[in-house]
Simulated assay, not measured.
Amino acid sequence: MKFSQMIRNENQDLFQEIFEHPFVKGLGEGHVPSSSIAHYIKADYEYLNAFMQIYGTAISKSAERKDIQYFNEQVNFVLNSEIHPHKNLCEVIGIRYEDLQGFPLPPTADHYVKHMLYHAHQGGVGEIIAALLPCPWTYLEIGEYLMKQYQPSEDHPFYPWISFYAEGEMEQLTQHLCERLDYFSAQASQAEQRRMKDAFRKSCQLELKFWEMAYTCEEWPGERSRVR
């Protein structure tokens, strides 16, 4: 069995919890609190900025041009394609995308970013991929799950979001990262493979926590009482 499929199987429990999370189910049912959506966009915008920076670190550690080219292409994908599902959510709640940018990361998102940065600076390209991979992989499977479970029509409020992640580029992105992870894991020591597994599982755990963070509008202790 390929390394990528093995660690996916090992984390089925977390994938299933993500599918069953009320925010994710709400996307399928067409009803998510506006405050939760706004909180999600604020955090995800800054999270994706960090994601692009980590691609940059991966480029600096890449020995092959095909990896440099790929990570560079993925920066472009985040900048120019992944804004579309954000804009769908903004349209649903009636808030301009620009008005939800530039906010501090909530605790969970802050921890997630620092987790990825740690592996980016301490590990090689394979370890970086292991930390990054749960983001596109869980979103791909969320999109596929919601399509199958709810069969949304084009007039569904979140149809653009669901269809974006269920089809096309996200599947190609995930497949390529799996292939490269399999390549690097085959050359890795047992200790390096353990670090890859750990990075992957923690990212899966933090993906689940990210949805909970958004749904509950998580903030740092004391922030609600501060005058903005």
Rank of each mutant, 00 (worst) to 15 (best):
M1S: 11
M1W: 00
K2G: 03
F3Y: 13
M6C: 13
N9V: 06
F15P: 04
F15R: 14
E17F: 06
E20W: 01
E20I: 01
E20S: 12
P22E: 03
V24N: 05
V24A: 02
L27G: 04
H31F: 15
H31Y: 14
P33H: 04
P33D: 14
P33L: 04
P33T: 00
S34K: 13
S35F: 06
A38L: 12
K42I: 07
Y45F: 14
L48I: 09
N49Y: 06
N49C: 06
M52G: 05
M52H: 03
A58E: 02
S60G: 13
K61N: 10
S62W: 06
S62Y: 07
S62M: 12
F71S: 05
N72C: 10
N72H: 11
Q74G: 01
V75L: 07
F77A: 15
L79I: 03
N80P: 01
S81T: 14
E82F: 10
E82T: 09
P85I: 00
P85A: 00
L89A: 03
V92Y: 02
V92K: 04
G94M: 10
G94Q: 12
E98F: 07
P106I: 02
P106N: 11
D110N: 15
H111W: 07
Y112K: 05
V113N: 10
M116Y: 09
Y118E: 13
H119G: 00
H121W: 08
G123S: 08
A130D: 08
L133C: 08
P134R: 10
Y139N: 01
E141G: 03
E141D: 12
E141K: 15
E144Y: 02
Y145V: 00
M147F: 03
Q149C: 04
P152R: 03
P157H: 05
F158Y: 14
Y159S: 12
W161Q: 02
S163G: 00
F164D: 06
A166D: 06
G168E: 09
G168D: 14
M170L: 09
E171Q: 11
E171K: 15
S185E: 06
A186W: 04
Q187K: 15
S189K: 07
E192I: 11
Q193C: 12
Q193N: 05
Q193A: 07
Q193V: 02
R194A: 15
K197A: 13
D198L: 13
A199V: 02
K202Q: 12
S203Q: 06
C204I: 10
L206D: 14
L208N: 04
Y215N: 11
W220D: 07
W220Y: 11
E223D: 12
R226Y: 11
R226I: 13
V227G: 02
R228I: 13
